[in-house]
Nucleic acid binder design. Sequence first.
RNA 1: GGAGAGGUGGCAGAGUGGUAAUGCAACAGCCUGCUAAGCUGUCAACGAGCAAUCGUUGCCUGGGUUCGAGUCCCAGUCUCUCCGCCA
Length: 426
Amino acid sequence: MLEINNIRENKESIIGQLKIRNKDFEKLIFEVINLDELRRSAQFKLDNELAELNQLSKKIGELFKTGQHQQANELKQKTALLKDSTKTLKQQLVDSENSIKEILYQIPNVPNKLVPSGNSENDNEVIENYGHTPQLFAGAIPHWEIAKKYNLIDFELGVKITGSGFPVYIGKGAQLQRALINFFLNEAIASNYKEVIPPLVVNEESGFATGQLPDKEGQMYHMQEDNLYLIPTAEVPITNIFRNTLLKEDDFPVKRVGYTPCFRREAGSYGKDVRGLNRLHQFDKVEIVQLAHPENSYAILDEMVAHVKLLLDKLELPYRVVRLCGGDLGFTAALTYDFEVYSSAQQKWLEVSSVSNFETYQSNRLKLRFKNNNNKNQLVHTLNGSALALPRIMAALLENNQSEKGISIPKVLIPYTGFDTINDKE
RNA sequence: GGAGAGGUGGCAGAGUGGUAAUGCAACAGCCUGCUAAGCUGUCAACGAGCAAUCGUUGCCUGGGUUCGAGUCCCAGUCUCUCCGCCA
């Protein structure tokens, strides 16, 4: 969430920049500024009354000690009056603080200057393009048919066990999946990310801190009995490792990578684009997370983009990079680059990665700070990105690498799979 | 699931009703051939002020008792230990 002091000091530019999201937040901003003024004046009055109360208490203590009970009792009556009025002021203070928080939850992050205006994904700015659509051989079939042909993934079996969107990977399908995970992890480790295996279940506080709650409550699986949530992305547990922490300047850069399954309810997205691996309730993902000094967080963002590019280059997949427009930008992000691979049998671009800078939007809720050179506590910038999400990579690999001879495995993966072709039905 | 113990600053750790010791780390200044040590201050949030500074809050959370609560009472929550069950 945005910092109230920042809003107060830069309201004009914040209102202006938020317009890129195609929504006017002017009213909310002014409302929150007014509430903040109310809050401050209530606190000022309260502070003064409490100061007086403290003085009186001190005096009463001294009077009792020296045996002047009568005078003490007279003062006591005075404190009773003051106490009543502090109670109302305190209530005012708490009320205004709560209202401020409620409004702040409704205000998304301020888009970076680079974010283009636009309404939907159609207005995203293509930064880097593969150039041409890959050609395929004549008998190309979509990945769900390939998966069936070679018995790599069984979607119906998953329906039996759980429900739709929970596929079962089998034989070489499972091995290829595991190979990709290991490949992604090793590449990240080679780039100095430290691997973590976090919990797959998080509490309410963690959900709030990274911004999934209260915004996307319905997107997460919730275990009511224990009030815990299945993670929709490793971003949640990995970023929350650093909740309530104070870093030092020379702790930067903090780089973490983790592989986890991700669970998403995807409520309301039935019917469209859900065939095969395109949209699942459970999927695997390798996530990279960085904590950065505010001064160079955008250089770090570029570094993370470069990392993802390299992965796709090595996998020899046709891809493009797009900069999300205001209408498509996530609630908590200031700037996001999406990576899309071309799925040639479906003739579609599929999103496989999303790399974002959240600036202080998450760290404000996380209370994630560092002690800067002036010995002041300052909020850290948080960034994360998928590197990469597995299912659509798998889909693209199967579709793009098919030929009469079967599915060929990219060179970099062969040491991980132990086979270079899939051409039999096990 | 049963029983017990506990939650204090960045960290460690005292504090049985009078307004958060002490140590370590960090930052600034002083001192000193250099380094180390030493001394002083700062070192959580919020508010008032141009500022020096001042005030308030802060001891897991929320209530309560009291002129005054880290300390007493009630409820909740989390952690640890032991027992039970179990990969």
